[in-house]
Amino acid sequence: IDAAQIVDEALEQGITLFVVNNRLQYETSRDSIPTELLNKWKQHKQELIDFLNQLD
């Protein structure tokens, strides 16, 4: 699994991931984030931050 897949998966569930001051953040209108997704974010945090920083 790679960062792009995780970002896409989040988007499919209505969650936008982004980076502020090198910290992973998210925006969503959902009430809660699925635990499975949160765990993936934690496991791949640095990859996600690097990936999202490249997009900007």
Rank of each mutant, 00 (worst) to 15 (best):
K45D: 11
E12V: 09
A4Q: 14
G14I: 02
T35W: 11
L52Q: 01
E27V: 13
A4C: 06
F51H: 08
N53M: 12
Q25W: 13
I33G: 01
D31H: 06
I15W: 03
D31F: 05
A10W: 02
D2M: 13
I15S: 01
Q46A: 10
N39F: 11
I33V: 13
L37P: 00
L38R: 06
Q54C: 07
E47H: 08
V7M: 05
K42M: 13
L24M: 03
L37K: 06
T16F: 14
L52F: 08
D2T: 15
N21C: 07
K40I: 10
L38G: 03
F51D: 00
L24H: 01
T16D: 05
D56P: 14
N21R: 05
E12I: 09
D50C: 05
K42Y: 08
H44D: 02
I1Q: 13
L55Q: 13
N21I: 03
Q5N: 08
L55I: 13
N39R: 10
L37D: 02
E9V: 04
I6Y: 05
R23Y: 12
V7Q: 02
I49V: 09
D50G: 06
L11N: 09
Q46M: 08
L48W: 01
I33S: 01
R23D: 15
P34N: 05
V19H: 02
A3L: 13
S29A: 12
I1N: 08
I6M: 12
L55S: 11
S29Y: 10
T35E: 13
I49L: 07
L52W: 02
T35G: 11
Y26C: 06
E9Q: 06
Y26N: 02
R23K: 15
A3W: 07
Q54Y: 11
H44S: 05
V19D: 01
N39H: 11
Q43K: 14
L52S: 00
F51M: 04
I49T: 04
E27T: 15
E47I: 15
R30I: 08
F51P: 00
F18D: 03
N22I: 03
W41T: 03
R30N: 10
Q43R: 11
A3D: 01
P34C: 03
G14N: 05
T28K: 03
K42Q: 14
V19S: 04
K45F: 13
T35S: 12
L38C: 07
V7I: 14
E36K: 08
F18R: 13
L55Y: 09
Y26F: 09
Q25K: 10
L17A: 00
K42V: 12
S32L: 08
G14T: 02
F51C: 02
V7D: 00
I15K: 00
H44R: 04
I6G: 00
A10C: 04
L55A: 11
L38K: 08
N22G: 15
K45N: 15
R23W: 09
V20S: 12
K40G: 03
F18M: 11
T16Q: 10
G14A: 04
W41G: 01
I6F: 06
F51G: 00
I15V: 11
I15A: 03
T28G: 05
F18K: 14
Q13D: 04
N21H: 08
A4F: 06
E36H: 11
D8M: 14
K40P: 01
A10P: 00
H44Q: 04
Q46I: 08
N53A: 09
Q54D: 10
R30D: 05
L17P: 00
N22P: 00
E9I: 03
Y26M: 06
A4I: 06
A4N: 06
N39G: 07
I1S: 10
D2F: 12
E27G: 07
L38D: 03
I1F: 13
D50P: 03
I33R: 01
N22H: 07
I49Y: 03
E12G: 12
H44A: 07
N22M: 06
L55R: 15
I33E: 02
N53D: 06
E12C: 07
V7A: 03
V20K: 14
N53R: 11
N21V: 04
S29I: 09
I6H: 02
D56I: 06
F51T: 02
Q54R: 11
D31I: 05
Q5F: 11
T16C: 13
L17E: 01
E9Y: 06
N53C: 07
E36D: 11
D56H: 14
T28E: 03
E27I: 13
L48G: 00
L37V: 05
L38S: 06
L38N: 03
L17N: 00
L17F: 05
H44N: 08
S29T: 10
P34R: 03
N53H: 07
R30Q: 06
F51N: 01
N21W: 05
Q43H: 10
E36F: 10
F18Q: 10
I49E: 04
I1W: 12
E47Q: 11
N53L: 13
F51V: 03
Q54E: 10
E27N: 13
L37C: 05
A3R: 02
Q13K: 09
V20Q: 12
E36V: 10
E47L: 12
G14R: 05
T16W: 11
P34E: 04
R23N: 15
L55M: 13
Q25I: 11
W41Y: 04
I49Q: 02
P34H: 04
R30V: 07
W41M: 10
N21F: 06
I49D: 00
E12M: 14
A3V: 13
T16E: 07
V20C: 13
Q13H: 15
L52M: 03
T16N: 09
L38A: 06
D50M: 10
S32C: 08
N39C: 07
Q43C: 05
I1G: 08
F18I: 14
N39M: 12
L17H: 01
T35C: 08
N53K: 11
I6E: 03
K40A: 05
E36W: 10
I33Q: 01
D31P: 13
I6T: 04
K42W: 13
A3F: 09
G14Q: 04
A4D: 03
T28Y: 05
K45H: 14
L55H: 12
